[in-house]
Design a protein around this nucleic acid. Structure first.
Lengths: 334, 334
DNA sequence: TTGTACGCGTTATCAC
DNA sequence: GTGATAACGCGTACAA
């Protein structure tokens, strides 16, 4: 419908050739300024928008970067994305977002779809993918960034963090405070590999002080806060822990609310810890014990590395950004 | 790089013509099953992904739906989107997301970009846009859905809700409980037209009981929870209200936390109300007084209407979905 | 069942 | 500074 004239219509209306319109629209040299202004006015009045499919087809280089996120219901990914987008757009690239709902299958389908647009680069969340994803991206020779997690052999490059180390950091802090009956509330196995990594780190920390078991409760899918609250009750009934670590801050908050409802004092009766240090924490009466993750920096540095990679510059293939313990006040003090 | 062979490479490797490969890849008739399997295997091993730019260029019909959201840092839009995506994908369409950060300029640029892909449909959040947006979309003749808000003359079709009516609903409830010194905490003017509509509704409700002023505090941009907390303190100091309505639930929660920190009892000393009824509320010790918005339904019905519109079916141009008051416990009882 | 010619809208290249 | 022509990779229509 838009092609009732397309570039031809504009050219005809302006009394010039296609090429002159093309040059005028793109802002490249080869058109007198007067003519350019005239053409732009006509194009605008005709509602002409260049056809990117044709442009992409006739050119080999693209400025499109596809970004895959597990979900939009998590400020973590919004933070990472915010960091990326600033950089991506400042460099003249544009991004296209999609979510996989934590499904490897959906991620694979998305990779095929985005590759069909011949993007300059692709961003994936995490390092665990359908085997075909790696193969597709490698075969396409497309610059690929994996983020949020790290691994030894990324598809292309990787800017993330070590979730196990982060769990270890948190776990050691908690263990040092004397807790000996920890528990973890997360989601079903395979749903969130990063959370599993953190749980392993926590388990390792407690292993170092002779506690060999970290009971894990997998919350059935629901709203995050309720998952935290229900998970807290479940793990309390099943394992009588003295401290409960949660997959995330929102879940930990749910746990805190459940504790209050049960008449339990935090941290007097039981300790609670979250993960990520999200905005919510800044207003809580009792600051949550958690780990601050470098989400925004990850986005910025990841995008920079990806664009450098697109330009053929390869630095380190894997960059792990550091986390920071937030002692908070939901576990007991020394 | 991927075109080291492209469809030609596959055809050559399989010993057939381009068209046979094309047919095999698309799953249409005209290829023997044996040959199809063989071709698919070869294509896969060669990492061949069809070029969507070429496909889109050669066809007039697209299955792409572009969706514009203000931000990802708000579960409201995640909810709407979740509702849409299910429908969109079930109908064989695919969606591309972008965020505008509440900037009309960014929205206009996005509309141009998405139109350059010749989408089947476009979804915009809200009804207030740069004038050119309307012109571009109308000129392109692309099916367009506006959502989350409503207006009398949508660009094309509109499935949303009446924010002023929602504010009126909430305001009347609060006014009926005897409150007479209301205040509103929102964001700077123009940042969120929907919130302004709700504030107008609240003001109208209080106008009905003879209270003609609704002091409004515009929180400077920050994290939502802190904006709520800081806004609460500011509005309290400036206007000594007996009830504070917030732009959203998360801000209201920030306000509740600030009240607690100031030693104020809610609702004993002061009333608080939010908007949207988000997941957070389900775990709070004191359920927030708020309005439940039909976000998911809006997404589902909006997507259905848009796809019907794409297929040429036009029902009502504007559909307003109803909201529901959640009395909660953060304003005093009757 | 399989292959050939042409067109989609744009840009690069070369000629004027 | 401007215009003509040939790609880009795929799908449609038709021919074999």
């Amino acid at each position: 419908m838009i092609e009732k004239g397309g570039i031809h219509g504009v050219a005809r209306a302006a009394g010039v050739s296609l090429m002159t319109v093309s040059r005028a629209m793109r802002g490249v040299e080869g058109v007198s300024e007067g003519k350019r202004a005239e053409i732009l006015t006509i194009a605008r009045s005709l509602g002409y928008v260049p056809n990117n499919n044709a442009r992409a087809l006739s050119q080999s280089n693209s400025t499109l970067i596809g970004v895959s996120l597990p979900t939009l219901f998590n400020d973590v990914f919004a933070d990472i994305l915010a960091g990326m987008r600033g950089t991506i757009e400042a460099q003249g690239y544009s991004s296209v977002i999609d979510t996989t709902e934590y499904s490897a299958q959906a991620e694979r389908r998305w990779v095929e779809r985005v590759l069909s647009w011949r993007p300059a680069g692709v961003v994936l969340t995490g390092v665990q993918h359908d085997p075909e994803v790696r193969q597709l991206l490698r075969a396409a020779g497309v610059a690929t960034l994996e983020t949020w997690d790290i691994c030894d052999d990324p598809i292309d490059i990787c800017v993330g963090m070590d979730h196990r180390a982060a769990g270890l950091l948190l776990g050691r802090h908690i263990a040092r405070l004397g807790y000996r009956r920890p528990a973890f509330v997360g989601v079903e196995r395979g749903q969130d590999p990063r959370a599993e990594g953190r749980a392993r780190g926590i388990a390792q920390a407690f292993g170092e002080v002779g506690v060999d078991v970290l009971p894990v409760h997998a919350a059935p899918p629901d709203n995050t806060y309720r998952m935290g609250a229900d998970g807290f009750r479940a793990v309390l009934a099943a394992h009588a822990p003295d401290v409960v670590c949660f997959l995330s801050d929102p879940m930990a908050f749910g746990g805190m609310m459940a504790a209050a409802r049960m008449g339990l004092d935090v941290p007097g009766d039981i300790g609670i810890a979250g993960f990520n240090h999200l905005d919510l924490n800044t207003v809580l009466p009792l600051e949550l014990t958690t780990v601050r993750t470098p989400r925004r920096a990850m986005g910025v540095q990841g995008a920079r590395a990806l664009i450098a990679r697109i330009h053929g510059v390869v630095q380190e293939r894997v960059v792990a950004l550091p986390c920071e313990l937030v002692p908070g006040a939901t576990v007991r003090a020394q």
